[in-house]
Design a protein around this nucleic acid. Sequence first.
DNA 1: CTGTTAGCGCATTCAT
DNA 2: ATGAATGCGCTAACAG
Lengths: 339, 339
Amino acid sequence: MPEIEAQMNLSHTNASSTPTVRDVAALAGVSPMTVSRTMSGGRNVRPDVQKRVRDAADRLGYRTNQSARNTRLRRPTGLIGVAVTNLGNPYYGQFALGVEDVAAINNRHILIGNSREDPAREIQLLDDFAGRQVEGLIVVPAGNGLLSHSAVPLVLATRAIEGLQSDTVLVDDVGGAEAGTASLVGDGHRRIAFLGDVAGIPTARRRFEGFARALHSNGLEFDQELMFPVRDSGCSFDAVAKSLARRDPPTAFFSANNRTTVGALRAICEYRKSQTLVPALASFDDVELADLLGVPLTVMSHDPRALGAQAALMLFDRLSGEAPDEPRLVHMPVTVRRY
Amino acid sequence: MPEIEAQMNLSHTNASSTPTVRDVAALAGVSPMTVSRTMSGGRNVRPDVQKRVRDAADRLGYRTNQSARNTRLRRPTGLIGVAVTNLGNPYYGQFALGVEDVAAINNRHILIGNSREDPAREIQLLDDFAGRQVEGLIVVPAGNGLLSHSAVPLVLATRAIEGLQSDTVLVDDVGGAEAGTASLVGDGHRRIAFLGDVAGIPTARRRFEGFARALHSNGLEFDQELMFPVRDSGCSFDAVAKSLARRDPPTAFFSANNRTTVGALRAICEYRKSQTLVPALASFDDVELADLLGVPLTVMSHDPRALGAQAALMLFDRLSGEAPDEPRLVHMPVTVRRY
DNA sequence: CTGTTAGCGCATTCAT
DNA sequence: ATGAATGCGCTAACAG
């Protein structure tokens, strides 16, 4: 009688911790192998035995330990590591969404880390991810430190790293910034300030490059006094407010990302309460509701969700061996819109 | 000579896949145990041997397989599963940030899943997380289906589930909505429309409760014609635009979340181009830049990041056994601000 | 200090 | 169709 066997084997049960195949086997009166087979499809297990096993599993609240399973099968973990520089930025929320979309389709989960723009933390994060046997990494790099992480397939998003051969998805920062700036110049603006941390953030540097190029090709010179190396909304607000209080204020601002745009918009809206002339703003990246403010606005935008999806696609076809050996570089297009 | 041993043992090496302790041991000419000891601190290993081991590990690009390590040590995975209903919503970006903050402090990583407001997908997600041996779950529930997941410590965020005994962090939906609505009424509004999917989303229901309570205590009746069961920005826009075109339009709107607020603001801004009277809006949850639009705005806001952090704190002190047995319920305060 | 043995939870292989 | 032995990668416990 199975019941008797079950009773006999019950002594092997581990009471407190999570049940294992053995616990289920003991309760069902079968060998661990039968449990294993049942839980993974049930090939070569008699239906009635399967039922006994499943019932026992349910009663114990048994769940296959995927971790152990993967180890035994020498199988990858089904985990993708994603590191971003600022999880709180809605931009990266959309980005993560794009990655998750594609990951879910490919039956993977995402491990998210926030580097907070700190290269040391980024390294630690990626080290940790690698130790957890992630199958691949999608990284918005905070620094240049992750040079050596060649073990795990890596896709860089938003920013490239010099000297690191790796799949990369970039935004057309230079071209977009150039087009947006040209549009400001076309409106007659001659004194345009730049808001962005050119020294600290690679995308800001590239966007400045496009900005400067547009000025140059229109025969304009950039006044270094109008360079504001800000990277968050508060500092951007201060910089814009201060510069508008000068004797020769800029007539327009170029903002290198959505955080600096928010600060600039606040300062400009504040300013226009007391002034008739409203400075114009060109913003790289979209900000929700910005178009409704009545500030002359040029938006150089792209879809961060699409960017995340693209990065994930590149990662997965590299994982499946369908990608060429050489690292690939994709540029996401930038659209210039005016409000 | 170690070198000779290394050569001899090299036959055990697995060429292609990721290196293991044995590979490192073979190369360094020691036993796997010495590698293990070295990699986990180096207690009881001679410095020079340690160096040999580390060098070998570096040369092979060895990384400890944490998954196997945790299995052997019967240790938890260091993973927290987080399931949200809409990763693309900036609200949940902030929420995730709060969770990540606390998780990082506690040396854990977060596995993020997007249920897309789909109960079936949520169950699948949580099942998967459980199989991956997450230590705990933080869930913004999409449905009532996760009743049985009692194996893993669970913290519910934002929405409670009837009949599920579990730590829960809620927002003071009812009180906040009541206060915000009262403020509209105080301004003389009598016809106030409600934007929110009361049937589908528990928070919307609770916020409606506060809304209705405020109307009632002010002797007002709610016109069911002014109930719009919308849950995204586009539908909200349509509903507001349509209702403003009626013969007896509402003079104010109560929006139950930040997505519906965005749609409402767009519709109101569109409307005011042709009309002198601008309808007022009370928004549950903040939206960046909304305060600058010149629309009479009442914001019932809280800090989603703090909410995420609170949920994580509750999870961690439950994990550490410092929590009482009974499920705890925390309410995050809501602030009413006017613009 | 270092190596050997054994076993975490699971599943392949080879028995029966 | 089922079970026993073996081993995935790692390390505790015990030798020596």
